[in-house]
Write a protein that binds this DNA or RNA. Structure first.
Length: 571
RNA sequence: GCGUUCGUGGUGUAGGGGUAGCACAAGAGGUUUCCAACCUCUUAGCCCGGGUUCAAAUCCCGGCGAGCGCACCA
């Protein structure tokens, strides 16, 4: 960093101006929990809306909303309960903390599955600390990174967790989504909201939080027919850091299309979402030069993913993962199907032309089987229908479902070849998931927008926020707080605020220069000033934040431009 | 979780066993024909708990929080 104090100055400003603040501060605060103040919350709302608009403009993506409290069974199926309950142990000599199963890996083929007592036994048999070579371990304790809670009271309560990701909500709703989209893939669902991870030690301000704003898109596809977005228009040269263990290791710079062609990005749908993620980030004001995509090595992949790209953004805390784009394949839907025994977590794949399937079967002859087996006849018929491999010769021994065996004679069955028309098949869709951490993205928006400068020998700072991301669209300033100017300014302010999604704020205290500075500091892009001329003809001056240039315009005109985000055309 | 530095108005800081100062910001008023001007007035602070002491913001212990290093980060 050019200036190590910049981070402190930025954080102070965020606190002073009500953007980001420590939560519960009057009680001492809680590490990993933050508040968005009046200015920050408006920004969060706008980034969220921007994100929703961005994905829903695709036309095949809808929004859903699920509970944050999630019953245990859901997270057992998804693998989170198992993955989160790592047994941890501490070296009594040097206080280093380790995952217990990793320490005993060499002593047991499946250490991950061991209980605490067995692990303790193995640890006691002479496992030494990798840091200090001592062998003195505390009892292994489960470290659960999910917040546990209980649904219902006392002993009748069911174990539940605060969701560690919003994604499971989309999987729960797959049957409904499939119906909504009239049984046609591909389609997607998004959800924004809070996620919870009980981090051991949250650090770096709002980079690692215990409760955070996430936004996830689950895009359901047919793995045999992956949708290919049009990335030919994306000419940007981007930075890629492919899998260090793969054939393309090292850093490379190329377009999204070239990366897909070169096989660096392995999946066409993933490539499309990488490009669209880029569009979103740049659109909300992230500096394109400080974005890069990093492919996970197979060793660091999440338990549910088979291929994963991080989108990292560079800021005061270095390169930080802000978006994860994972190919989750059929992991979640398949596991939910197994654990819940629910049907409806699959999709139908229609064959281009119906396939003729020749089926050989032994057709039962009821006239013989009935009298011969009497009460067991039905079971025999069922067993014959269930045969997948036909015997080469008759008679043969047929196993019934209850384990008994009967002899089938040639007169009991007739060998037949039947032709069936099969028009399609059921399969479990694959899922491509871009998962966004909004808090981290907002941090980097602020970081990249925070500009420290000088004006007439004094420090002068401002946020160069993208239009539509600033907490408000403009300030309305009466040049003097008298002589009819405040009244006209109030009227203009009311008019602007009456337009849905446009926000203005009145500021009439202290000198005009001070008020411009206040607005600049929180990144308000426009200032409308009411002066004496305004009282005569209704025009105002429009000041542009980024170069402080002013033009005169009429209120109706300004309003129209604010709506269309086209005020720049006046300059 | 371990080690380490630290915690004073909204923000930034000074002080360091005996009356807590300053700057900026904010509010009220005045002045001012467009970029943190000026004048008057005002609001507002020693992170929390315990101990030592006649007396604790100050010293000691614990907690909470922040930064950094180690560990952790599905």
């Amino acid at each position: 960093m050019a200036d190590e104090r910049r981070l402190e100055r930025l954080t102070s400003m965020l606190k002073r101006r009500g953007i980001i603040l420590p939560a519960f501060e009057i009680y001492g605060g809680v590490s990993g929990l933050i508040d968005y103040g009046p200015v920050g919350a408006a920004m969060l709302r706008r980034v969220t809306q921007n994100w929703l608009d961005h994905w829903m403009s695709h036309g095949d993506i809808v929004e859903i909303d699920s509970p944050t409290i999630t019953p245990e069974a859901v997270l057992v199926a998804s693998g989170h309960v198992g993955e989160f309950s790592d047994l941890m142990t501490e070296c009594k000599a040097c206080s280093s903390v380790f995952r217990a199963d990793h320490l005993v890996e060499d002593e047991h083929p499946n250490a991950d599955s061991l209980g605490a007592q067995k692990i303790d036994g193995l640890l006691g048999s002479g496992i030494t600390c990798p840091s200090c070579q001592e062998s003195a371990w505390t009892a292994a304790q489960p470290m659960n990174l999910m917040f546990q809670t209980s649904i219902g009271a006392m002993s009748s309560g069911r174990t539940a967790y605060m969701r560690p990701e919003t994604a499971q909500g989309m999987f729960m709703l797959f049957p409904s989504l499939y119906r909504h989209f009239r049984q046609r893939l591909p389609f997607g669902a998004v959800q924004t909201g809070h996620g919870y991870r009980n981090e051991i030690s949250p650090r770096q301000g709002m980079i690692r939080l215990r409760e955070f704003n996430m936004a996830e898109l689950e895009y359901f596809i047919d793995p045999q027919d992956p949708p290919v977005g049009n990335i030919s228009k994306h000419n940007e040269i981007i930075t890629l850091i492919p899998d260090p263990d793969g054939p393309h290791s090292g850093e490379s710079r190329m377009s999204f299309g070239a990366a897909l062609e070169a096989g660096i990005v392995r999946h066409p749908t993933v490539a499309w979402f990488l490009a669209r993620t880029w569009d979103f980030l740049v659109g909300v004001g992230i500096d394109p030069a400080r974005i890069r995509f990093r492919q996970h090595a197979s060793t660091e992949m999440a338990h549910y993913a088979t291929d994963c790209w991080d989108c990292e953004i560079h800021g005061e805390h270095g390169w930080v993962e802000c978006v994860g784009i994972a190919n989750r394949t059929c992991h979640d839907l398949e596991n939910h199907e197994t654990h819940s025994k629910a049907r409806g977590l699959r999709a139908w794949r229609q064959f281009a032309t119906p396939r003729k399937q020749v089926v050989e079967r032994l057709a039962p002859n009821g006239a013989v089987i009935g009298p011969t087996f009497r009460n067991d006849a039905a079971a025999v018929v069922a067993a014959l229908e269930a045969l997948t491999e036909l015997p080469d010769s008759l008679p043969f021994d047929l196993s019934l479902e209850d384990g008994r065996s009967v002899t089938i004679n040639p007169d009991m069955v007739e060998r037949r070849e039947e032709t069936a028309n099969v028009s399609g098949e059921w399969f479990t869709p694959h899922v491509i998931e871009p998962a966004f951490g909004f808090d981290r993205i907002i941090w980097h928006i602020l970081d990249h927008a925070y500009t420290e400068g000088e004006k007439e020998g004094e420090d002068y700072n401002h946020l160069s926020l993208a239009a539509g991301i600033s907490s408000i669209d403009c300030v309305v300033l009466p040049l003097f707080d008298k002589g009819g100017m405040p009244e006209l300014a109030t009227e203009i302010n009311t008019t602007i605020n009456a337009v849905p999604r446009l926000r203005a704020q009145l500021d009439s205290s202290r000198s005009i220069g001070r008020r411009y500075a206040r607005a600049d500091e929180i990144g308000v892009p426009w200032a409308l000033t009411v002066d004496h001329t305004s009282l005569e003809d209704g025009s105002v001056t429009v000041r542009r934040r980024d170069d402080q240039v002013q033009v005169r315009a009429f209120v109706d005109e300004v309003l129209e431009h604010l709506r269309n985000n086209s005020l720049d055309s006046l300059f």
